[in-house]
Design a binder for these strands. Structure first.
Lengths: 339, 339
DNA sequence: GGTTAATACGACATAGTGCGTCGCATGAGA
DNA sequence: TCTCATGCGACGCACTATGTCGTATTAACC
């Protein structure tokens, strides 16, 4: 039964089945995959050949003829079409997302999303929204840190190794040693800390689990040997243990009480620290914030950043930490600056 | 003249032209838009009606008949197809992006991107990558602040007003006043500060430009009157001026010199403060970082967050600021905590 | 309330095209 | 050299997409 809608449907399925550039599929493979996915895919091989040929006239797909068989692929993965089409609002949101993510994500990971951002930009360029570049600004916290560049092949290999549970052989240039060293890693997880991506892995024979920054890797090679997970390994608990000293992620919450300046109170009135946050204005003019928050290092950073605009009242242990911190700082700054 | 496979591609064009749910287009509008885009779109209106009806049988599009005219739209914006299909790596990157953005973006803006994230999640669910939820973690800086919810209609109206240069009438509940007030705003720009979105606008007759938080708006109504931009207004300079006290974005860079702990040095070795950052290890064991950085409030927050692990050496003015800050903190904490 | 414009939709005839089938050419592997 | 797999040209037919016309319904306007 030949209906144009069916044809459209089928063509879309074909287009979705054709892979993006580095990969490719033969005509018969595409047909087989589609037949398997949808049993009512009753077209002859000839029709499939014709479909692909037709589609290649209007979409950026081509075939490379090796021998007698055609291998199909998308030429330009940046040329993207989607149904339904992206709206201007969504395009704008994507543009914002891009700006937000740029200082946070490893560049190689971000590059995977480039086609989306490009698509959004192309859409906005034509419309009145194009001016929005000058009409929206993101005021970020913290300075813009420059993310270290990760080699694209390293990123791909690391993701693949983790995905397929395979050993990953790389040159690793650790911070302490100048020269890089060839190691085979047993990938267990990925941790992103600000802009840096770390592969959580155990080196070849050794049982201990360590962190390897992706940007210090080079010359990746996927080994055929399957990787093994140490019994009982769980990424969440590993992070808690491994990063205990630098970034403790305590499980329990603590009841925080702090006196804050009007500016900070205003800040917190809009973005609450927790669901149960309460802000009370005392008789003496001080504003006290109460909230149960996770007892983390990040909390300390964040509170400390406000300086004298925030005074931790309780828990007593946290107050003592801050008192010690301020004593140390005061001692530091009261001496003359060394040249 | 009905050329070969034209029908099929025309149907595709129609599918791309039909908007996602909240929006909708009439049959004639779709025809007009397509005719304008592609001059060889010589089909009768009747054909277009038939096309849409046919497509609605296999694709999630429907029409709502208001009066005598049909308004078409995609039912389920979550059902998305993109060409070429999303790869697993990209899906994973999107998933990460989602996690990164959640604490940063206004929820309503984030919701515009939901279909992408959902699409990615659906893709990952089936594959081996599904486990990646337990294999990747983002270690963020700062506690998770709860973003204030923005009403969806407010967000849409605000974006539309800015896009079409139209006056926006809303109920605004300012922080100081309990009751909300009806105001007509002249939209000029959007500013995102942490998770809060502000509309930069001037109220009806008044010449001064102010910031209106989106989450304090309700009952939006787009007016037909065109909005006007004050002569010489530029968002970037406005932010610099308006936010001078809370978030100064000074234009010039300052040469920062700071003594840091080994941990902070390690941190900075990976994410550089600036392109010219240098880290020197002095004879007495102290590590000194030099970089030219923007002279902003965020820089102070960020440096202060490290507490006694960072000692600002120069510029002298900045060091004096930090010395004063630490004196104030010390004074604060050496007195007993008030109950 | 009457009139007009706009839109949707059913019916019908016809052209022309998508699809299956067949057969041949070509390249790879045994 | 033989065999198998794939691509591709050709052919014929069924069937569907399309334009046209007429009618029903609604909104808008005087």
């Amino acid at each position: 039964m030949r209906k144009a809608v069916d044809t459209v449907f089928r063509y879309l399925a074909v287009l979705q089945c054709v892979p993006a550039h580095p990969a490719r599929k033969t005509t018969t493979r595409i047909l087989a995959e589609l037949r398997e996915k949808d049993p009512e895919f009753n077209v002859s091989a000839r029709s499939m050949q014709r479909s692909l040929e037709q589609l290649s006239a209007r979409f950026p797909i081509t075939c490379e003829t090796v021998g007698r068989t055609n291998h199909w692929y998308w030429i330009d993965s940046h040329a993207m079409t989607q149904l339904p089409a992206m709206t201007e609002h969504t395009a704008f949101a994507l543009r914002l997302a891009n700006e937000y993510l740029r200082p946070l994500m490893p560049p190689a990971t971000l590059r995977l999303l480039d086609s989306y951002f490009n698509h959004a930009n192309r859409l906005l360029k034509g419309s009145a929204l194009g001016r929005w570049a000058n009409r929206a600004r993101i005021v970020a916290r913290g300075p813009l840190l420059t993310p270290p560049p990760v080699k694209e092949d390293v990123q791909r290999a690391a993701y693949n190794a983790l995905l397929n549970d395979r050993l990953l052989e790389i040159n690793y240039r650790s911070r302490s040693q100048q020269r890089s060293q060839r190691v085979a890693l047993n990938p267990l997880g990925l941790v992103f800390r600000e802009t840096v991506a770390y592969l959580v892995a155990s080196a070849w024979h050794y049982p201990d689990v360590r962190h390897y920054a992706l940007h210090r890797m080079s010359k990746p090679r996927l080994l055929d040997q399957p990787a093994g997970t140490p019994p009982g390994f769980r990424l969440a608990s590993h992070i808690r243990d491994e990063l205990r000293f630098s970034y403790p992620l305590a499980s329990g919450n603590i009841p925080l009480r702090a006196a804050v300046s009007p500016e900070v109170a205003e800040h917190l009135a809009e973005r609450r620290l927790s669901g149960d946050q309460r802000i009370a204005r005392h008789a003496d003019g001080r504003i006290v914030v109460e909230a149960s928050v996770a007892n983390t290092q990040e909390l300390r950073w964040w509170l400390l950043g406000f300086g004298s605009a925030v005074e931790v009242l309780s828990p007593a242990s946290l107050r003592e930490e801050f008192a010690a911190q301020s004593r140390a700082m005061q001692a530091m700054y009261e001496t003359e600056a060394p040249s």
